[in-house]
Amino acid sequence: MIIFQNVSKLYKNNSHEIAALEDVSFTINPKEFISLVGRSGAGKSTIVKMLIGEEKPTKGRVIFASYDINKLKHKELPHLRRKIGVIFQDFRLLPNKTAYENVAFALEAAGRLQSDIEEFVPQALEMVGLKEKMFNFPKELSGGEKQRVAIARAMINHPDAIIADEPTGNLDPINTWEIIKLLLKINELGTTIILATHNKDIVNYLDRRVISLENGKIIRDEEKGKYILV
């Protein structure tokens, strides 16, 4: 369960302050699939960053399961991040590690046993359809393949939630749909998915809950929502 309680984020720019988020409140229930929509600069990325503790709110509280995220110490952040998988527009794979090692790294970082790693990593890569390219380096993979490695890495720790920040932003339509289908499949298996996107077709196809943001405020929060932005 994720709760945003009257969250504001202000950035100081020279003398005047700019609000990235203004008094945002919402709750996401377990196993939900929600889309965060809005134009660039609407505040989607700020919400994502707050969920993984990369940014702290100026006002309000962000809660994830038992974690009061803005009160976490720097040392405690890794524990939170092992419970939330993150997928980025620019993939963010470790360039000097193979697909296998990239996925294994998340387990190693969590201190899991070698036997677990040898069992789970090939399974995860098989699920995203990359078993054949397990030992390739990111530079030998296409954009879609890289994003699938990132998805395998995000789900390998069996997180409670996966946050996808514009995961299809750098992909062609075919790969885009592949990625969305994968996210839906992961959601069916019981993981909360938060998808930040400005792809109208995807949002309308999903027909799930949509939170629309504009200028740092929530302007709409609908079950089975559509992408409606002027």
């Binding site: 993984i52 990369e54 040392k75 952040l77 890794p78 524990h79 939170l80 991040r81 092992r82 993150v86 963010r92 794979l93 470790l94 360039p95 000097n96 790294f105 998340a106 970082a109 969590a110 890495r153 720790n157």
Partner: peptide
């Protein structure tokens, strides 16, 4: 950048 990525996937 790699160091940042490692932090984001939960490495201490």
């Amino acid at each position: 950048e790699e160091i940042g990525i490692m932090r984001l996937v939960g490495a201490s």
